[in-house]
Design a protein around this nucleic acid. Structure first.
Lengths: 339, 339
DNA sequence: GTCATTATTCAAAGCGATTTCAAATTTTGA
DNA sequence: TCAAAATTTGAAATCGCTTTGAATAATGAC
């Protein structure tokens, strides 16, 4: 069922039918109704490729993910949020997975040259993200999930990682903890650097010296977290509190604490960052987990919205959102045990 | 940079350039080289929309997900696998999220009518899946991840859920367990029904009566699993073993066991189904978790392959794969404690 | 040297929509 | 009543590619 067929069926020209369906003013209201009704009845939908070619807009946004570390639970939550927003606007999401940084760069070039998408969502930036520079150069609109310092106007949405960790650290210091472990993300990633800044700021505000042995940089898996926590718990004096970078990390730390014969919330405290996974609830842990909380699904939804605004012409320089992060205290964080 | 520009630049016709780039035989080897070199140097890539319109193939496969329950960690693993395979063939994946079954059906119709994709991957089927019927009717090629009984030839890949659960159950029975809980997926989903069949078969083979109180049907979240396990542990006589439908489920059960003051692997046994998440490793749990294991990422990769075969013309009726599931015994499963 | 093949190249016709520009019809206003 | 304006419709160009059918150049057989 092509536009041509529909037009013939109606005894009208393609022009008129196209206009009627796209809400142009210069078409008789009666014809418009007739066209709309017939189109709906026959289930007509414009061919996506033809429409894209004619309009020059592809009606899609791109998401390039490094399969190894980026396509985890965080991403599926993000995707769920973003998809929810884009779906209602009939914009679809094209997911490309790559295995390396080189492949990722190549993927962006390919996407740009073939004009597959109208915009891109860029993830997990580093402090000076070359991919962002490249996308600017390629003149392909994008929204950054996170931040980067490339000195050019970039649309972004980020959460206040510095503030979150600073608050969490201060809280633990208030409770008497002095040896606080920070299980952070990979070095170089903006969010990890920001968290580190918050951590150091809180420590120095109380005059507590920074001990590099108490900081770990790794991906957020329970396994790595387990190993790191395990070795850190062997340090003397032993750390009394953990800041876990994600809920997966928290699971690993939890296991290490238990294996060391300690009790979470009494012998050792923990505050974890919670991206709000529906299948892993801080409130339902045992003991319940104190968290710095920020829904990554909501961030995805909002970024979908920002993408639409960007495509509607809003300047990237005007698209900046820094979301505060809640500190939710539950049972896993308590006063430092004296000993 | 359009084909036309490239052609002018080379002093050739679009025809020749197009043919040279697409490997048609009727073009001089010297010109082909010259064209290829220039195209690469100028970074030419055909416009995706134009190419699609001209060829009639969209070069994309669709994935429609109900955001609520389908876009979890399973899906991101699956996506990682599938993306890996599709990426090398320059086929991209279009992800659409929907909130309800009605929306999902509408999404398929829309996708079909607008010819957005060449094929679809269908997920989480029910025993008689209407979506599959619809896709057949719409004549849009698809591969089913799972199985359904609609009596028509459908391409599918599934794991042997029945066999896996039957083996796991039998093993627990061998260890002396008689009250074995099955935490299964939602009623109606094929995989859940298959698992139930395996469970019942194993029980009846040993003459152990089936107790409906020992079966739960729910989504695989740690929270729901926790509640179910908690209430089941209050039954008297108490169940001595759990079959957990996923690793998330296992985490919930684990928590309930601990909260009840019991010890996993001694007082209570558990075998969980492991989809092999890189961030949640059965070997690194404490105690290590006995599992029925099948990598969902590998399934995704293979389904990508099958999609390509389907698009290459292989009949759907010839595309059926049933993957065996390994039973990996670790510390969480042991003899039933007498009492 | 001629003629039939074979190897290369190109002009032009799609693909299915949107959109420009013009034409036909209806309404309006003096 | 009739010209001018407003409304409504349509033919054809366009988007950037592939592909058909024809034209030209090179080769080989006689």
């Amino acid at each position: 069922m092509r536009l041509k067929d529909l037009a013939e069926h109606l005894g009208l020209s393609q022009t008129t039918v196209s206009r009627a369906l796209n809400g142009y003013p210069e078409v008789n209201e009666a014809t418009r109704l007739r066209v709309a009704e017939t189109a709906a009845r026959l289930g007509y939908r414009p061919n996506a490729s033809a429409l894209r070619l004619a309009t020059g807009r592809s009606g899609a946004v791109g998401l390039v993910l490094r399969g190894a570390d980026e396509l985890g639970p965080h991403m599926s939550e993000f995707l769920a949020g973003m998809g929810g927003r884009m779906g209602t606007e009939e914009v679809d999401i094209i997911v490309t997975t790559v295995d390396s940084y080189a492949e990722e760069v190549a993927a962006y070039r390919r996407i740009a040259a073939s004009q597959k998408v109208d915009a891109i969502v860029l993830h997990s930036p580093t402090l000076r993200d070359e991919r962002a520079e490249m996308l600017l150069e390629l003149k392909i609109p994008f929204v950054l999930h996170g931040r980067t310092n490339i000195g050019k106007p970039v649309a972004w949405l980020d959460i206040d990682n510095t503030g979150a960790v600073e608050r969490a650290t201060s809280h633990l210091l208030d409770l008497g903890h002095r040896r606080i472990v920070l299980l952070n993300g990979l070095k170089g990633r903006t969010f990890a650097e920001h968290r580190e800044i918050g951590y150091l700021a809180a420590l120095s505000a109380r005059g507590v010296p920074f001990d590099p042995a108490l900081m770990g940089n790794s991906v957020f898996t329970d396994e790595v977290a387990f190993r790191l926590a395990q070795s850190m718990l062997e340090l003397r004096p032993r750390p009394t509190a953990f800041l876990a970078g994600s809920m997966m990390t928290a699971l690993g730390v939890f296991r290490a604490i238990r294996q060391a014969g300690l009790e979470l919330g009494r012998d050792v405290s923990m505050i974890a960052h919670d991206d709000v996974f529906p299948y892993l609830n801080a409130d339902n842990m045992y003991p319940t987990m104190s968290t710095t909380r920020s829904s990554i699904r909501q961030a995805g939804m909002r970024i979908g919205e920002l993408i639409l605004q960007l495509l509607a012409g809003k300047p990237a320089a005007d698209i900046h959102e820094l979301w505060p992060v809640e500190l939710v205290l539950r049972e896993s964080s308590g006063p430092a045990s004296e000993r």
